[in-house]
Simulated assay, not measured.
Amino acid sequence: MKKQHVRVAVVQSAPNLFDKESAFQKIESYSIDARLQEANLLVFPEVFLSGYPRGLTLGTRVGSRTSGGRKDWQRYWESSIDIPGEDTNRLAKIAKENELYLVVGVVERDQEFSGSTLYNSIVYLGPDGEVLGKHRKLMPTGSERLLYGQGDGSTLTVIDTPFGRIGGLICWENYMPLARTAMYAKGIDILITPTADARDTWQATLQHIACEGRCYVLSSNQFVTKSTYPVDLAGYLDIEQDADVLCRGGSAIVGPLGEYVEQPLYDQEGIIYADLDMSLVMQSRYDFDVVGHYNRPDIFQLVVNETKKDIVSFKLK
């Protein structure tokens, strides 16, 4: 029997860019806060560990790259994490100490081949101190494609918890109708959407997805100011003339009929809490179940390839 009520928390913040320890300090601090507020689930923004390089060109123009941009990228690589690895063990320890399901957006370093490719990922940690799974962003957005590799269907992760099934899609992945359908078909009850999109249209997206999927949607966004950027970056000139606030946030919690449970938080760092009545998920599907009675499999079918995408395979002679 699932728990009918769960207290959730969504963080709106950003670390000092490319500073892993700064990110961990914030994760530890907000996790303690969440424990004191008796939260069961805590969510951090897209690539919170160790930052989203908003506004930086990393020395890239069509047809050329600069040596300074390459050095900035190396700092990003050095502040990324391995899954599994020492840093994920540290996250798992934080989750266990604070008895939380902890969901963190991270920059993940490829361990399978060269070790050089980075992925925009979500890592899931359990209150028992275990790494429960990860998700790699399937399609990096715009110029993110130079920073991050493409994930595959093997990390369309959904995790069963005592209060329901949780899983996530990252930022504009949520504009991919078939990706959403795959998550709905996995029985998602709480969809987690770490993001870097602070536009008004993102709020319409959250409400639509909640209403479409008849699930709770937890959106965790960044609040970023120029003060979090190292001034010795080669690319600091890229943002020098920008406004001080680079991302205003907009973290929110939406219920399974598309209504706000917690309104968007703007123009400040913070954490929002909500007590979710999970019985409302089932009640909301009474008249609309997008992969159930409101589906027409005789007309529409979706095939999802969940095999791991191996670039190279070696065979013994």
Rank of each mutant, 00 (worst) to 15 (best):
M1Q: 12
M1F: 07
K2D: 10
K2T: 13
K3F: 05
Q4W: 00
A9V: 06
A9M: 04
A9Y: 01
S13V: 00
A14T: 12
N16L: 07
L17D: 02
F18S: 02
E21M: 10
A23L: 06
K26A: 10
K26L: 15
I27N: 01
E28F: 03
S29G: 10
Y30W: 14
I32E: 14
D33F: 09
A34W: 00
R35S: 04
N40W: 00
V43T: 14
P45S: 07
E46N: 14
E46Q: 15
F48M: 03
L49G: 00
G51C: 09
R54E: 11
T57H: 11
G59N: 09
R61W: 03
G63H: 05
G69S: 09
W77K: 11
I81D: 02
D82Y: 10
P84I: 11
E86Q: 14
D87C: 03
R90Q: 09
L91K: 03
A92I: 09
A92N: 14
K93N: 10
E99D: 14
L100K: 05
Y101E: 07
V103R: 02
V103Q: 03
G105W: 09
E108H: 05
E108V: 04
D110Y: 02
E112G: 07
F113H: 10
S114D: 15
L118H: 07
L118D: 08
Y119T: 02
N120K: 14
I122Y: 01
P127F: 00
P127T: 00
P127D: 00
D128L: 06
V131Y: 08
K134V: 00
R136I: 01
K137C: 13
M139F: 12
S143Y: 15
E144N: 10
R145A: 12
Q150A: 12
T155V: 07
T155N: 04
L156T: 00
L156I: 05
I159P: 04
D160F: 01
P162R: 08
P162N: 08
G164Y: 06
R165F: 08
R165D: 01
I166W: 02
G168F: 04
Y175C: 08
A179F: 13
R180T: 08
R180M: 14
T181D: 09
A182E: 12
A182R: 07
A185D: 13
I188M: 04
I190A: 04
I192H: 01
R199E: 09
D200V: 05
T201R: 10
A204M: 09
T205F: 06
T205R: 11
C211D: 15
E212L: 14
C215L: 06
T225A: 13
T228W: 01
T228G: 00
T228R: 13
P230C: 10
D232N: 14
A234Q: 06
A234P: 03
G235M: 05
L237D: 15
L237C: 03
V245S: 09
R248S: 14
G249M: 08
S251H: 04
V254W: 04
V254S: 11
G255L: 08
G255E: 10
L257R: 15
P264H: 06
D267R: 05
S279C: 03
R285V: 03
Y286R: 14
D287Q: 11
D287N: 12
F288R: 12
F288C: 10
F288I: 06
V291Y: 05
Y294E: 14
Y294P: 00
R296S: 13
R296C: 11
I299M: 08
Q301S: 15
L302D: 10
T307W: 07
D310S: 05
V312R: 14
K315T: 11
L316P: 00
K317F: 03
